[in-house]
Amino acid sequence: MREDWLRNDRLPHIYCAGCGNGTIMNCVLEAVDKAGYERDNTVFLSGIGCSSRAPGYIETDSLHTTHGRALAFATGVKMAKPSLNVVVFTGDGDIAAIGGNHFIHACRRNIDLTVVCMNNHIYGMTGGQGSPTTPIGKTSTTTPYGAVEVPFDLVDLAVAAGANYVARWTSYHVTQLTEAVLNGLNTPGFSLIEVRCQCPTSYGRRNKFREPKDYMDFLRSHAVLKEKWERTAKPGEELPAESFLVGEFVRRARPVMGVADET
């Protein structure tokens, strides 16, 4: 049962009302439970930010580390003791900005980790500053006239850097997300599951998604299934504005590190 994995004495958690991170935590715990992991041989790691508070609510060994470094810590844990199952919660600021180097190198090494990136397009905990994934034109406290930088595509980055399993879903697609995390856990090597999620307090408030439901509607209407798009798109056709592909992007068997020997 998913409830068994929670530290009930610490709930309710610090997330704002309608925050997508809680949903993602549910889906990951559901997947971890389905994968048959034990609480005593699973470790959750995280960096800094809203997303990174999640391991503190899970009743396992957990490391809540420094900003952006979660993947480097996870490398140490997994390489030193490959029998542990290691899951990393991270945010877009963590993985795309300050921890970008650790991210591409963890993908390159293809260490057996499952990384769930809660991408809310903003630095939520510090009050809504723009992040490397803030879409062009969106408002934040550090992009008051609209973001002008081109955002990172984390999925493309992970595929190019060599991860074994890469998928993208949203906090609206809970069953597909659970399935993707489960696939990530079962795939040896580096798995990245990017989850687009809502931040009604910092992102929504400034970008006309004041209610959590509004952003859920946006996620539902702008998420384009990758397989469907590949089937139906005319040659050269581009995705409609603000839309993004969801689905499984890569599943392959490149050489991996940190897998426990069967012997």
Binding site: E3, L6, P12, C19, G20, G22, T23, C27
Partner: peptide, 13 residues
Amino acid sequence: GICALICPDQAIR
């Protein structure tokens, strides 16, 4: 079980 999964506050059971 979608409601319990999507509930960010683990409040539905």
